[in-house]
Protein backbone atom coordinates (compact mmCIF):
# COMPACT_ATOMS: atom_id res chain seq x y z
CA UNK A 1 0.00 0.00 0.00
CA UNK A 2 1.19 3.49 -0.84
CA UNK A 3 1.01 5.23 2.52
CA UNK A 4 1.37 8.72 1.07
CA UNK A 5 -2.13 8.70 -0.40
CA UNK A 6 -4.92 6.20 0.25
CA UNK A 7 -7.69 5.57 -2.26
CA UNK A 8 -11.08 6.35 -0.68
CA UNK A 9 -12.20 2.80 -1.45
CA UNK A 10 -9.46 1.42 0.80
CA UNK A 11 -10.55 3.60 3.75
CA UNK A 12 -14.23 3.03 2.98
CA UNK A 13 -13.72 -0.73 2.87
CA UNK A 14 -12.07 -0.69 6.30
CA UNK A 15 -14.65 1.52 7.97
CA UNK A 16 -17.52 -0.46 6.42
CA UNK A 17 -16.17 -3.87 7.51
CA UNK A 18 -14.68 -3.52 11.00
CA UNK A 19 -16.98 -3.83 13.99
CA UNK A 20 -14.69 -3.82 17.05
CA UNK A 21 -11.93 -1.27 17.57
CA UNK A 22 -9.34 -1.32 20.37
CA UNK A 23 -7.99 2.19 20.91
CA UNK A 24 -4.45 2.14 22.31
CA UNK A 25 -3.73 5.37 24.19
CA UNK A 26 -7.40 6.28 24.70
CA UNK A 27 -7.64 9.14 27.17
CA UNK A 28 -10.42 9.86 29.67
CA UNK A 29 -9.54 13.59 29.45
CA UNK A 30 -12.36 15.10 27.42
CA UNK A 31 -10.25 17.63 25.51
CA UNK A 32 -7.86 15.02 24.10
CA UNK A 33 -8.38 13.99 20.46
CA UNK A 34 -8.44 10.31 21.47
CA UNK A 35 -11.44 11.00 23.70
CA UNK A 36 -13.39 12.72 20.88
CA UNK A 37 -12.55 9.99 18.42
CA UNK A 38 -13.48 7.23 20.87
CA UNK A 39 -16.81 8.88 21.65
CA UNK A 40 -17.64 9.55 18.02
CA UNK A 41 -16.84 6.02 16.86
CA UNK A 42 -18.88 4.57 19.76
CA UNK A 43 -21.82 6.79 18.74
CA UNK A 44 -21.54 5.52 15.18
CA UNK A 45 -22.01 1.97 16.43
CA UNK A 46 -18.48 0.58 16.68
CA UNK A 47 -17.70 -1.77 19.57
CA UNK A 48 -14.98 0.32 21.27
CA UNK A 49 -12.36 -0.95 23.74
CA UNK A 50 -10.14 1.59 25.54
CA UNK A 51 -6.54 0.38 26.06
CA UNK A 52 -4.43 2.37 28.51
CA UNK A 53 -2.47 0.82 31.42
CA UNK A 54 -2.68 4.09 33.36
CA UNK A 55 -6.45 3.89 33.71
CA UNK A 56 -7.20 0.25 34.48
CA UNK A 57 -10.11 -0.01 36.90
CA UNK A 58 -11.82 3.03 35.34
CA UNK A 59 -14.26 3.25 32.46
CA UNK A 60 -14.40 5.35 29.31
CA UNK A 61 -18.04 6.11 28.37
CA UNK A 62 -19.09 2.92 30.12
CA UNK A 63 -16.34 0.71 28.62
CA UNK A 64 -13.74 -0.65 31.08
CA UNK A 65 -10.10 0.24 30.34
CA UNK A 66 -7.74 -2.70 29.72
CA UNK A 67 -3.97 -2.51 30.24
CA UNK A 68 -2.86 -4.08 26.96
CA UNK A 69 -4.11 -5.67 23.75
CA UNK A 70 -3.54 -9.16 25.16
CA UNK A 71 -5.86 -8.36 28.07
CA UNK A 72 -8.86 -7.85 25.77
CA UNK A 73 -9.45 -11.60 25.66
CA UNK A 74 -11.59 -11.71 22.50
CA UNK A 75 -10.98 -11.19 18.77
CA UNK A 76 -10.82 -7.55 17.61
CA UNK A 77 -11.10 -6.24 14.07
CA UNK A 78 -9.04 -3.06 14.28
CA UNK A 79 -6.40 -1.49 16.49
CA UNK A 80 -6.35 2.32 16.48
CA UNK A 81 -3.03 3.59 17.89
CA UNK A 82 -3.11 6.99 19.57
CA UNK A 83 0.64 7.15 20.29
CA UNK A 84 3.57 9.11 18.82
CA UNK A 85 5.47 7.54 15.92
CA UNK A 86 8.29 6.47 18.24
CA UNK A 87 5.90 4.29 20.30
CA UNK A 88 4.23 2.50 17.40
CA UNK A 89 6.52 -0.50 16.92
CA UNK A 90 5.97 -2.18 20.33
CA UNK A 91 2.20 -1.88 19.90
CA UNK A 92 2.35 -3.44 16.45
CA UNK A 93 4.59 -6.24 17.74
CA UNK A 94 2.08 -6.94 20.49
CA UNK A 95 -0.75 -6.91 17.95
CA UNK A 96 1.10 -9.46 15.83
CA UNK A 97 1.10 -11.89 18.78
CA UNK A 98 -2.71 -11.84 19.01
CA UNK A 99 -4.67 -14.88 17.89
CA UNK A 100 -6.62 -14.31 15.75
CA UNK A 101 -4.76 -11.36 14.24
CA UNK A 102 -6.56 -8.05 13.87
CA UNK A 103 -7.65 -7.20 10.31
CA UNK A 104 -6.54 -3.57 10.46
CA UNK A 105 -3.91 -1.47 12.27
CA UNK A 106 -4.63 2.24 12.13
CA UNK A 107 -2.16 4.94 13.30
CA UNK A 108 -3.54 8.31 14.23
CA UNK A 109 -3.06 11.70 12.62
CA UNK A 110 0.62 12.61 12.93
CA UNK A 111 1.77 9.02 13.61
CA UNK A 112 3.71 7.04 11.04
CA UNK A 113 6.13 4.12 11.27
CA UNK A 114 6.85 2.55 7.89
CA UNK A 115 8.83 -0.37 9.33
CA UNK A 116 5.98 -1.30 11.67
CA UNK A 117 3.55 -0.97 8.77
CA UNK A 118 5.62 -3.31 6.59
CA UNK A 119 5.73 -5.87 9.39
CA UNK A 120 1.95 -5.83 9.78
CA UNK A 121 1.30 -5.90 6.04
CA UNK A 122 3.60 -8.91 5.63
CA UNK A 123 1.06 -11.00 7.58
CA UNK A 124 -1.92 -9.64 5.67
CA UNK A 125 -3.02 -6.87 8.03
CA UNK A 126 -4.29 -3.67 6.38
CA UNK A 127 -2.51 -0.55 7.61
CA UNK A 128 -3.53 3.12 7.65
CA UNK A 129 -1.12 5.77 8.95
CA UNK A 130 -1.37 9.48 9.76
CA UNK A 131 -5.17 9.59 9.52
CA UNK A 132 -8.04 9.89 11.99
CA UNK A 133 -10.92 7.38 11.68
CA UNK A 134 -13.36 9.98 13.02
CA UNK A 135 -12.34 12.48 10.36
CA UNK A 136 -12.39 9.82 7.62
CA UNK A 137 -15.82 8.54 8.71
CA UNK A 138 -17.13 12.10 8.87
CA UNK A 139 -15.62 12.85 5.49
CA UNK A 140 -16.87 9.78 3.61
CA UNK A 141 -20.36 10.19 5.09
CA UNK A 142 -20.07 13.97 4.40
CA UNK A 143 -21.10 14.66 8.00
CA UNK A 144 -17.88 16.66 8.30
CA UNK A 145 -19.21 19.03 5.62
CA UNK A 146 -21.00 20.89 8.42
CA UNK A 147 -17.60 22.33 9.27
CA UNK A 148 -16.81 23.48 5.73
CA UNK A 149 -14.46 20.56 5.21
CA UNK A 150 -14.04 19.25 1.69
CA UNK A 151 -15.44 15.72 1.93
CA UNK A 152 -14.15 15.04 -1.59
CA UNK A 153 -17.33 13.09 -2.26
CA UNK A 154 -20.53 13.79 -4.22
CA UNK A 155 -24.01 12.35 -4.01
CA UNK A 156 -27.38 13.10 -5.59
CA UNK A 157 -29.18 10.82 -3.11
CA UNK A 158 -31.17 12.05 -0.15
CA UNK A 159 -29.41 11.00 3.03
CA UNK A 160 -31.29 10.11 6.22
CA UNK A 161 -31.12 12.69 8.99
CA UNK A 162 -28.21 11.59 11.20
CA UNK A 163 -29.24 10.65 14.71
CA UNK A 164 -27.42 9.41 17.76
CA UNK A 165 -25.98 5.93 17.34
CA UNK A 166 -26.82 5.64 13.65
CA UNK A 167 -24.39 4.21 11.11
CA UNK A 168 -24.08 6.53 8.09
CA UNK A 169 -23.64 5.45 4.50
CA UNK A 170 -20.07 5.93 3.32
CA UNK A 171 -20.90 4.95 -0.26
CA UNK A 172 -20.69 8.32 -1.96
CA UNK A 173 -18.85 9.03 -5.20
CA UNK A 174 -15.28 10.09 -4.59
CA UNK A 175 -13.73 13.18 -6.07
CA UNK A 176 -10.16 13.61 -7.20
CA UNK A 177 -9.43 9.90 -7.34
CA UNK A 178 -9.92 9.77 -3.59
CA UNK A 179 -6.26 10.24 -2.81
CA UNK A 180 -5.63 12.16 0.37
CA UNK A 181 -2.37 13.64 -0.82
CA UNK A 182 -2.69 17.11 0.66
CA UNK A 183 -2.27 16.03 4.25
CA UNK A 184 1.09 14.55 3.49
CA UNK A 185 2.38 17.51 1.54
CA UNK A 186 3.26 19.26 4.79
CA UNK A 187 5.35 16.30 5.89
CA UNK A 188 6.99 16.17 2.49
CA UNK A 189 7.78 19.89 2.56
CA UNK A 190 9.41 19.34 5.92
CA UNK A 191 11.62 16.58 4.54
CA UNK A 192 12.64 18.72 1.57
CA UNK A 193 13.76 21.49 3.89
CA UNK A 194 15.87 19.35 6.15
Amino acid sequence: MNHDAYPDNYIRGILNSVKSIAMVGASPVNVRPSYFAFKYLAQRGYDMIPVNPGHVGKELLGKPFVASLSDIGRPIDMIDIFRNSSHIMPVVEEALRLDPLPKVIWMQLGARDDAAAAKAESVGIKVVMNRCPKIEYGRLSSEISWMGVNSRTLSSKRAPVPTQGMRLSLNRMSVGGGDTAASDRAAKNKTEQS
Partner: peptide
Protein backbone atom coordinates in the same frame (compact mmCIF):
# COMPACT_ATOMS: atom_id res chain seq x y z
CA UNK B 1 -18.11 2.74 -5.50
CA UNK B 2 -15.87 3.94 -8.29
CA UNK B 3 -13.15 6.42 -7.48
CA UNK B 4 -13.06 8.75 -10.44
CA UNK B 5 -12.18 12.34 -11.08
CA UNK B 6 -15.17 14.57 -11.77
CA UNK B 7 -14.36 17.62 -13.85
CA UNK B 8 -14.44 21.23 -12.75
CA UNK B 9 -17.93 21.90 -14.13
CA UNK B 10 -19.35 18.90 -12.28
CA UNK B 11 -17.83 20.15 -9.03
CA UNK B 12 -19.14 23.67 -9.69
CA UNK B 13 -22.68 22.24 -9.76
CA UNK B 14 -22.50 19.45 -7.18
CA UNK B 15 -19.67 19.80 -4.66
CA UNK B 16 -20.97 20.19 -1.13
CA UNK B 17 -24.64 19.97 -2.07
CA UNK B 18 -26.92 17.00 -1.80
CA UNK B 19 -30.69 16.80 -1.45
CA UNK B 20 -31.86 18.16 1.89
Amino acid sequence: MSDRLPGFSTLAVHAGAQPD
